[in-house]
Design a protein around this nucleic acid. Structure first.
Ligand SMILES: [Zn+2]
Ligand SMILES: [Zn+2]
Ligand SMILES: [Zn+2]
Ligand SMILES: [Zn+2]
Lengths: 130, 130
DNA sequence: CACTACTTCGATAATGGTTGTCAATCCAGC
DNA sequence: GCTGGATTGACAACCATTATCGAAGTAGTG
């Protein structure tokens, strides 16, 4: 929110690259383990901080699993939602203008302001269905 | 899921009643504190277990806040979603046939099976907007 | 190159909602 | 009353996330 100076450090770059190389959702802990394995020296707290910052800037998508874990994925620009596979974590970005209109209409009807919405679809993809 | 024998005990009834008397969402801990205050002797774990069971049976709605807390509310029958006020917790049950159709269509298009979706709208209600 | 005023890092401790443990207790049904 | 499974509750364990805080990096200035 507050436009603080944000320095592009080695660690932040590493997190961004790790996300960019994979189209799936990953948890902060997965990313940390992966980076450590690749030889990148980075602390867990720093991974969380980097992801938090990227999320604030709108550079990553975040979804929350049923057991309360946050998953991060490099983000395309613009507002959209996800169809996520419970098995492999593969995600399909989806858009639904109708849903957007519906959300704003419902909110207006009930006099709600400053409205946000979450729409996530979880399922099992073809590959994981075997 | 597995149709285990489920006994209607004093504690379970207390939780169900506490939920039934209020149309808003409450956390497990809030419910526990409330019951204790009312003189009902019940353990926190039991409250969680009761809510879990009711959730499995589809008798309560569950939403997760941004900070990972689960909120429970007595449920109307049938599939629906919520428009929740961030300030007072008041919830409006909403239905959106169009959204349901859209969700299944998108899932089918991408070959996903065993699909669930979450649609929640958060905002500020008129009373809390002042 | 010093000196300074930041930001950032990372090991570790703390947080906090939730779940597991397990002996004590309840409750049908015999 | 007996018995076996269901249920309870005090407490510990879990675990993702966050806070702490001293150390280390990084401009910018002269
Ligand atoms: Zn899959
Ligand atoms: Zn949307
Ligand atoms: Zn309100
Ligand atoms: Zn729906």
């Amino acid at each position: 929110m507050t436009q603080t100076t944000r320095r592009p450090t080695r660690q932040r770059r590493a997190v961004a690259e790790a996300l960019a190389t994979s189209p799936e959702f990953h948890s902060a802990q997965q990313l940390h383990a992966h980076l450590q394995r690749e030889g990148t020296k980075i602390g867990l707290a720093t991974v969380y901080r980097a992801l938090q910052a990227m999320s604030d800037d709108g550079d990553v998508d975040v979804v929350r699993t049923d057991d309360g874990e946050s998953l991060y994925r490099s983000c395309s620009t613009g507002h959209h939602h996800h169809l996520v596979c419970r098995g492999c974590g593969r995600a399909v970005e989806i858009e639904g203008p109708a849903v957007e209109r519906w959300a704003t209409r419902v909110s207006d009807e009930h006099g709600f302001v400053d409205v946000e919405h979450t729409v996530e679809i979880f399922g099992t993809c073809q590959d994981c269905a075997d």
